[in-house]
Design a protein around this nucleic acid. Structure first.
Length: 236
DNA sequence: AAGAAGCTCAACCGCGCGATC
DNA sequence: TGATCGCGCGGTTGAGCTTCT
């Protein structure tokens, strides 16, 4: 009887990320349980799916929740409860896991504090919730919402350090939600990936997706649509 | 400077649901 | 109609990082 190699757990390595991403890009998602074997990964299908959905999938932003996003989360959590996938569906480029983590680590506390503070003055808007706590939370940024009335100094502007070997450059995050731009973080991740040779030896992936040139022609403008087409629908 | 405590978030686990046979 | 399979969801964990004392 052939012993099945035990499935790997824990943090994903860059090599595994590349294998999974390249495989999905070439063959698409057909069966999460079978996919790891063909992709040369010793991971469960579940683990692969989670990694793809929460991290490798294109156009995902991590951290730096805007004030507007915080308001939306607070409002929807009140309406829907802990239905994180439904809440995340209303937040472009956010994953349910991110939303859930953000709620559990930050917004939940704020809500509790507010509940206590506002038991007398009944109706505070989500923005008031955030305002009442933003002084102590430097992770909150409204830089991407220039219309916000709060003093800019009250928030930390964020930028993304990108290492290119010997040097580290800082690239300002440029996305705005309403323009549906790709964040520079994702932009660089995608660009770096595209410029690297594939690491999975088990398949010879040619960069011949019909959308590949389209992506390259647009990538310098940070538009996300070509990326979307290229990544999420690789078989088109 | 070092250890303790707190925080964040990637990842795992178990369960439920829908599709298929 | 029940069994099986695959997927998605929400709760939880724990490693690593940061802040505090």
């Amino acid at each position: 009887m052939v012993r099945q190699p035990s499935l790997k757990k824990g943090t994903w390595t860059p090599d595994e990320d590349h294998k999974l991403t390249a495989y999905i890009m070439r063959y698409g998602i057909w069966n999460w349980n079978e996919m790891p074997r063909f992709a040369g990964l010793q991971r469960s299908g579940k683990s692969c799916r989670l990694r793809w959905m929460n991290y490798l999938r294109p156009n995902i932003r991590h951290g730096n929740f805007s004030r507007e996003e915080e308001e939306t989360i607070i409002r929807l959590q009140k309406q829907l409860g802990n239905r994180w996938s439904a809440i995340a569906a209303r937040l472009p480029q956010r994953t349910d896991n991110d939303v859930k983590n953000y709620w559990n680590t930050r917004l939940k506390k704020r809500s509790v504090i507010l509940e206590n503070n506002n038991s007398a003055s009944a109706t505070a808007s989500p923005s008031e919730i955030i305002s009442s706590n933003s002084n102590t939370d430097s992770s909150t940024s409204t830089d991407d919402f220039p219309g916000a009335t709060e003093p800019a100094a009250a928030y930390t502007s964020f930028s993304t350090p990108v290492s290119n070997g010997n040097n580290t450059v800082v690239v300002d995050d440029i996305y705005t939600m309403k323009d549906n731009f790709v964040s520079s973080e994702n932009y660089w991740e995608i660009l770096c990936f595209l410029e690297q040779p594939l690491m999975g030896e088990s398949f010879d992936c040619e960069w011949e997706s019909p959308n590949f040139q389209l992506w390259h022609s647009h990538s310098q403008h940070y538009y996300c649509d070509p990326v979307d087409n290229f990544w999420t629908n690789p078989l088109v």
